[in-house]
Design a protein around this nucleic acid. Structure first.
Lengths: 122, 122
DNA sequence: CCGTATCCAAGAGGATACTG
DNA sequence: CAGTATCCTCTTGGATACGG
């Protein structure tokens, strides 16, 4: 489990530790749509493995960006949602996404605009 | 040298490829202050090695976020600056930084607010 | 001053099998 | 359904030495 340091020289540094890596912003970006179940998230992240999804969700939970709710049912139901702190990243992620779209155009990169972009753009 | 894919499913994915990793946003964040020389940058990034700084700058240059200017002098002088596309990330990075500051407070993480934050805040 | 080249360690990320 | 548990690969990043 990734542990944050107790002090940082720079906020950007901290942000990288909290949402860095291959999957975390994608997960948060997905959860912006609303509460989602584990397999629902998994389907939204085309190439993620079960291990990575679990691992990243646990870290996001530990760091207070994501909330996990287990319903005692059979079969099990587990729902994930962003916390208040997580929601506050929405606008930043949206900015990143807009920049990415623009950047892709200037570089001739094809962008199969995905679900969440559409939801936001509407 | 890191190559971008020719198409992406999602802009966020692209953004991660372009500015992901341990150093790139820190470098961009530093360059927001203005043009900087190689060793000047190196001093601003306390623990970066020469190899990493060179490598990351080359990739940022290749991807069109940073511009490199070599002056034919002895000793050599090389200056780095953000491109237009790079500058367009400034506000996003600033948002990230603000979020990081707030997050640090809620988590009891010490933040030795650094140079660039001050410059922006003023 | 501003790099390159080489080698190496650590950890992130993935494949696969199994479980309450 | 929603996970664990292993094992393994590959990339990232760091140390060090050398060069124009």
């Amino acid at each position: 489990m990734k542990e944050l340091k107790s002090d940082y020289q720079c906020a950007i540094d901290l942000v990288i530790d909290v949402i860095g890596g291959k999957w975390k912003v994608l997960i948060l970006w997905n959860l912006n749509e609303g509460v989602k179940r584990f397999n629902e998230l998994k389907r939204s992240l085309p190439n993620i493995t079960q291990k990575m999804l679990t691992q990243q969700l646990r870290e996001l939970e530990e760091h207070g960006l994501v909330e996990r709710t287990v319903y005692q049912e059979v079969p099990p139901r587990v729902e994930y949602a962003t916390t208040e702190m997580g929601k506050k990243l929405q606008s930043t992620l949206f900015e990143m996404c807009k920049w990415g779209d623009e950047y892709a155009q200037t570089q001739g990169i094809t962008m199969n605009r995905c679900w969440t972009t559409y939801n936001f753009m509407d």
